[in-house]
């Protein structure tokens, strides 16, 4: 800093940054404090927390949804229509990856497995993600349609999970819900823009929604696990989330002058490890390095 000393002193007072480095960024960077996957890993390792088998299975589902979605979204980096949108989708992918790390770390506590172990060495039929998140990116409108559905679903789900009887699930949801709220805003903005943009953008938005809508039902499926989780207060009845999901997505579609597509529901099966042809390719790309060089560090 070659400037007058008074200026440096002034900076100390206003920003609290010692030294007042004149070459520092105009804005100040801090890590902030929020629940991190490392904190969960520590508590799992020391035995402070350990999920029940049901809670672990559930965390695995939520973690796998987020992980596969993150992998799909990451593909957009350097390929989005604009640099700024590249960063936006990249940020959303990283948020999802963060949620996946937390959920998988917690789930692994029940089986003494790390997040990396669960992400990189499980086989296709061991993944519990829904079919929606493994659907191909398609064009930008198709990806926005997928984001629209998953973000409104995740927002309602996490909002309710903040009151979960499982304290760790509640804590992860409380952190994730703010991030997913932004994903919701991002996708809704684009649904409105594409739906009311040019004839071509509207055609593509309608096409994207028709491609993705068949996979909505699976998100709200009830099976023996969800019924037990609802009974123990770990999660909320899917029908309650579905009601809000339908209302809020319906509002955005109405504003965009779009309709809920009249398409039959896909059979699903992701929660039982039955996946479409897409997941194998996603896993091959995601896992190749870890499988090729087990335990590698850099």
């Amino acid at each position: 800093m070659t400037g007058p000393s008074t200026s440096a002193a002034h900076e100390d007072v206003t920003t609290g940054v010692a030294g007042g480095d004149g070459n520092a960024s105009a804005t100040r960077i801090t890590p902030g404090n929020a629940l991190r996957p490392e904190d969960i890993a520590l508590e799992v390792r020391t035995g402070a927390i350990r999920p029940t088998d049901d809670a672990a299975e559930y965390a695995l589902r939520l973690g796998d949804d987020a992980l596969i979605l993150a992998q799909r979204l990451g593909h957009w980096i350097s390929r989005a229509p604009e640099l700024e949108e590249d960063v936006a989708l990249g940020n959303i992918a990283l948020d999802q990856l963060g949620h996946a790390r937390s959920f998988l770390t917690y789930a692994g506590g029940a089986w003494d497995k790390s997040e990396d172990n669960l992400a990189y060495v499980r086989r296709e039929h061991e993944f519990r993600s829904a079919h929606l998140v493994e659907q191909p990116n398609g064009d930008f409108a198709v990806t926005i349609a997928r984001q629209f559905l998953i973000s409104f679903y995740q927002y309602e789900l996490y909002r309710h999970l903040m009151g979960s009887t499982d304290a760790t699930v509640a804590a992860i949801a409380a952190k994730a819900v703010k991030e997913v709220d932004y994903h919701r805003d991002h996708s809704a903005q684009w649904v409105l823009r594409l739906g009311q943009g040019t004839d071509e953008s509207r055609r593509r938005m309608i096409h994207g929604l028709r491609l993705m809508w068949p996979y909505v039902n699976e998100l709200f499926d009830e099976d023996p696990l969800t019924l037990r989780l609802v009974a123990s207060g770990i999660t909320v009845a899917p029908a309650i989330i579905r009601e809000e999901f339908d209302r809020l997505t319906g509002q955005v579609l109405a504003d965009a002058d779009l309709e809920v597509p009249d398409v039959p529901a896909a059979p699903g099966g992701g929660r039982r490890g039955e996946h479409s042809e897409h997941l194998g390719y996603i896993l091959a790309e995601m896992q190749v390095l870890a499988r090729e060089h087990p335990g590698a560090n850099w």
């Binding site: 804005t27 960077i29 801090t30 890590p31 700024e84 960063v87 936006a88 940020n91 932004y182 903005q189």
Partner: peptide, 21 residues
């Protein structure tokens, strides 16, 4: 770059406040 103010604000959030700035 952004097509309008709404998106400029969101892009700014994504580009310039990722590290709690």
């Amino acid at each position: 770059h952004a097509p309008d103010a709404d998106m400029a604000l969101r892009n700014a959030r994504d580009l310039y406040t990722r590290r709690n700035e």
